[in-house]
Design a protein around this nucleic acid. Structure first.
Lengths: 183, 183
DNA sequence: CTTACCATGTAAGGCGTTACATGATTCA
DNA sequence: TGAATCATGTAACGCCTTACATGGTAAG
């Protein structure tokens, strides 16, 4: 099958800007990609070894630091591989939503249960929206300083658009459920 | 680990309305859950066996038809299990977006490549939005006929909200990229 | 008669998480 | 000196998809 695994290109993408350790990569992913991509150490380190085996990245010892630390550097082949992936028309965009599932099957439980789920979902979305708006402001201040910043900003805007839409939906669901509850 | 697998409750949810075969379940999921949940036969059939082993569902032979066909019926334990899951506060809502990834790393390739990705993404979203709006109209016509319809409608509204937001984002990205291209 | 759809199921293998294991360094 | 953070890695295990295997029925 065409490779379903995308962690390799995500890592190459991060390495295309700067050399990073496995630990750094995890941090970057948690900070800036987390709302539409995630990975654990248990997949990051093996993928890094694999990238080295395929000559898409090189392991470089970090001499600037006492700590045991391996930083990785993207190779020319790695850049080519990344760029080919960016040109491939295959894309998959999946939403896996347990909240949607719990609303969908809401008829099987009390309205108050579904209402609680929605309120929790709403709170999470508000929190994430705040974070993304903070990131947006920061990026707008430094937009001209690096070539990649406009792309980061566009991605943040996707997050903002998505969470805003979900928040509106939460209002709609709450309104409906509360109305039902009082009848 | 707390069970990550949710296919069992999805199937129980579908069985809570009507008895279904594995084949029916797949069809239902493709038709009405596909934009926020999916599954293949390779996971549906084993999960059905497992539900029977756990006494959450029963296998019933279908006598109304010549064809070999096993339909499944939810048990009281199954309903209890579903309802407990609906009350549990744990929820996970994940967006896995390769389009976002391709925009994020857009600086590593030509603007025209990213533009193409966005145009394809836009076309897919328009298509899905049309489908959901058709589903919305249908549901609004029969809203009072079954207790679950309002919940289905709310879920469809989530899809509409999400795809509309993504379409607006596509416009924004296109505008930015085209502007860059002409400078 | 052949295409499309109905219908079920298994095996191989990929992908990823969690838990575990280990140990250094920094800061209070 | 103890907690937090830096840092890497493996093993077990779970979940899921794809591909394969099989065969019936309806409609044109």
């Amino acid at each position: 099958m065409a490779n379903e695994k995308k962690l390799d290109v995500v890592i190459l993408g991060l390495l295309s800007h700067e050399d990073l350790s496995g630990y750094d990569i995890k941090k970057r992913m948690d900070q800036i990609l987390s709302y539409f991509w995630s990975a654990s150490y248990g997949s990051i380190y093996p993928t890094l070894s694999q990238l080295v085996n395929q000559r898409l990245a090189e392991a470089v010892k970090d001499s600037s630091n006492d700590r045991r630390r391996t930083i990785y550097h993207i190779t020319e082949d790695g850049r080519k591989y990344l760029s080919e992936w960016l040109q491939k028309p295959d894309r998959k965009d999946d939403l896996h939503s347990e909240t949607a599932l719990k609303v969908f099957f809401g008829g099987c439980t009390d309205i108050s249960d579904t209402l609680q789920q929605i309120q929790a979902f709403e709170a999470e979305n508000k929190e994430k929206l705040l974070q993304l708006k903070a990131a947006e402001s920061q990026l707008q201040n430094v937009i001209s300083e690096a070539q990649d910043h406009p792309y980061y900003l566009l991605t943040v805007r996707l997050g903002i658009a998505t969470y805003s839409a979900w928040l509106s939906w939460c209002h709609e669901v709450k309104k409906y459920l509360k109305n039902q509850n009082h009848q």
